[in-house]
Amino acid sequence: MNACHKLVFIGEPGAGKTTCIAALSDIAPVTTDVGCTDDLARRKASTTVALDYGEMDLGEQGMLRLYGLPGQERFRFMFDVVRDGAMGLVVLVDAASAQGLDGLAGTLATYADELRQRPFVLCLNKHPDPPMAFRERCMAMLRDQGLVAPLLVIDARSRSDLAQVFRMLCLLLDHGDYPVLDGERGGA
């Protein structure tokens, strides 16, 4: 049976998770978007409340399954639904928004324990060249949580940018040691 690889996208609402999956997926992404009913509605009309799902057929190298999780802390339980077999995570940040840093702080507070166990890449999206002060603040937040990860500036719509993200994640997997739990390899 061909291998199944699982990649999980997390990040604040509006950081670009759905966009990443739409850019990568061979199939029309399965979405669970609903209209926002809180302050978030000022920034975006709808938000994911369960997951986004997409697939990339890798031929003989199996299937890459793509999961995007809701950004709000109250949906943290969805990570438990998709965590088994996850090869790593992509943490997205809206680098063009004043709330981007707050969003990252929230994401790290919610997922720090998971991020310590798995490789992840921090991706600054929506800004072609985020100021160094913004990048430094992001790295400081990681350090405050005892996390270490590469930081990439991406355009979530760009397939080549996402290929670089995937390449970086694979580099971490090839050279790193991660306490992946038994039974979490998802056929990989």
Binding site: H5, L24, M56, R167, D174, R185
Partner: peptide, 28 residues
């Protein structure tokens, strides 16, 4: 030193091969 975890019964560098495959599919 953290124990080196071998991911299943796979060969070293297989993630690189996967990255190459994905990169090719995505136009790199």
């Amino acid at each position: 030193p953290a124990p080196r975890i071998v991911h299943g019964n796979v060969v070293p560098g297989r993630w690189r091969a996967l990255a190459t495959r994905v990169g090719r599919l995505l136009g790199l």
